[in-house]
């Protein structure tokens, strides 16, 4: 009886702890939502009323509009290039051995470890010395390198899970290598590629530190514009735009979880 009670008690404690920790992770988002509808320019809890004026300002502020479009351009190109390069590289690593493979793998995985400001600073200098300044090309290249490890990992895991017998069977039935790739391998890799692309797109859309270095006004992305705003104004407009981003992300995660399976995308599941 005592043992039973002890187990129940510790289970209760454990779940309360988990709930508390999840609360700690979630409270900032809730506070942002609360602040975003506050009518006052000053911080106040609880808000003294309900107002959408900060949303109006966030949506009509020209810097945010421009930065949002810039961000979409950068993300679209960066995540797609990252998908192409990353898938090719995952295939290369999984299927072929060649000299310099280890070096190539290390270099392309290293943006995970190299501090983002080092990467951003490097591309800033590269852009300045190539005399292309802080143009789209530089921003997209930076984002491709930063997201590449995630795409590669996602596609690589899918490749590992792919049954080689299927490809062998197609080859034995007379399919050319291109046909095998197109009809068998690629369709089977699609979930991994979609997941990798999604992660790359989300990371690119929200990347800040490296972007701060490599973007100029005409190429700045939304997080950079938001950072500038925080430094220049003190009103809750940032709360409104943050609330929109949080809502958008949550919905996207719900959809991704429903259709692709988050565990799969993040490679949490066993096997």
């Amino acid at each position: 009886m005592n043992a039973w009670l002890a187990t129940r008690l510790s289970a209760g404690l454990f779940w309360s702890a988990v709930a508390l920790i999840l609360g700690y992770m979630t409270i900032p988002a809730l506070v942002v939502l609360m602040t975003s509808v506050s009518p006052s320019e000053l911080l106040e809890f609880p808000p003294s009323g309900f107002s959408l004026r900060w949303y109006e300002r966030a949506l009509t502020y020209p810097d945010f509009q421009g930065a949002f479009v810039n961000g979409l351009i950068v993300t679209a190109f960066a995540s797609s290039l990252s998908l192409l390069i990353g898938s090719a590289f995952a295939y290369l690593v999984e299927r072929y051995t060649f000299g310099g493979r280890v070096a190539l793998e290390a270099i392309l995985a290293s943006p995970l470890i190299v501090p983002h400001f080092t990467t951003g600073f490097g591309f800033l200098l590269l852009g300045a010395n190539l005399r292309i300044g802080q143009s789209y090309a530089v921003v997209v290249a930076t984002h491709v390198l930063l997201t590449l490890p995630f795409v590669t990992r996602s596609v690589y895991v899918s490749l590992r899970n792919l049954d080689p017998a299927l490809e062998r069977a197609a080859t034995n039935l007379g399919a050319s290598p291109l046909q095998v790739l197109r009809r068998v391998t690629l369709p089977l890799l699609l979930p991994g590629m979609a997941g990798g692309w999604l992660v790359a797109a989300m990371l690119s859309l929200t990347e800040f530190t490296a972007s701060l270095y490599v973007t100029a006004q005409r190429t700045q992305t939304l997080p950079v514009a938001m950072y500038t705003y925080v430094r220049e104004y003190t009103d809750p407009t940032i709360a409104a735009i943050s609330a929109l981003l949080i809502t958008f992300t949550t919905i996207l995660m719900l959809i991704a979880n429903r259709y692709l399976g988050l565990r799969r995308i993040l490679a949490i599941d066993a096997h």
Binding site: P28, V32, L42, T206, P223, A239, M253, L254
Partner: peptide, 27 residues
Amino acid sequence: LLAVTPLFTGEIVRTYAWILVLGSNGF
């Protein structure tokens, strides 16, 4: 969802949120 979503909201959103939570007149 609760655990992973914050990863994709980005550095600025989260940092700003903590300013609201931790400030002198904060949450």
